[in-house]
Design a protein around this nucleic acid. Sequence first.
DNA 1: CTGGGGACGGGGCCC
DNA 2: CGGGCCCCGTCCCCA
Length: 260
Amino acid sequence: MPRSFLVKKHTNSAKKPNYSELESPTVFISPYIYRAIPLPLIPQAEILSPGAYSPITVWTTNNLPLSPLPSDLSPISGYPSSLSDTSSKDHSGSESPRSDEDESILTKLTDPHGVETEKFQCGMCSKSYSTYSGLLKHKQLHCDAQSRKSFSCKYCEKEYVSLGALKMHIRTHTLPCVCKICGKAFSRPWLLQGHIRTHTGEKPFSCPHCNRAFADRSNLRAHLQTHSDVKKYQCKNCSKTFSRMSLLHKHEESGCCVAH
DNA sequence: CTGGGGACGGGGCCC
DNA sequence: CGGGCCCCGTCCCCA
């Protein structure tokens, strides 16, 4: 399924999602709960401090360790020291042509006048450039894009084409966002935020059709399906519709489609 | 068994 | 590049 739905929606009605009931969601933030419970709900500075988790290391196919995932993935306890020993220094965005996995070659050429010049040569297609940034641009636009060395996660087998995506994924292993109330850890701050609502009882997403409210937007969306005559997920055989895909799957598995 | 709610995971886009 | 946010999806539990 294409991910074009990920485009941020605006209040403009022409850009609304398919969920017609979502067109005018009565979303409000109720701060009273936060006032009633004087807890440090999202102390970002502490929860997300660098000390809460080890810095991210980029694992490429070249340095992917063979050792399996450590059994202790607690976000609070220590992580393998190997996680932090090579981090960041090779990825600071500097112009230095120094990288452990960079196959580029720095060659010295002598022109007809006997003047020695340095050339930066691509290790993949042998094209040479007078500046490292030129080589870098070439690699980003051409060679790396094709025979892309994916960024591989140390903890699992997943690979990503961008460093940012890998870093985001690694958070699902390191879980740097810790709930101060119960200690549960999450990969992203807003996941923690949603979790904290389970403690505070805050339900900022209200159904415009009934008086129900939800702490989670996805749950409101699923709930809105229950107000719809024709639900989103339809059985191809009996045309019955369901509010959730899981219900459709259950329906299919329980026999409707078995006869065919 | 079915329908619905609660909680949460995770990839991708926007700023 | 990172944070915030969007959306889809899944699992579990309960009525």
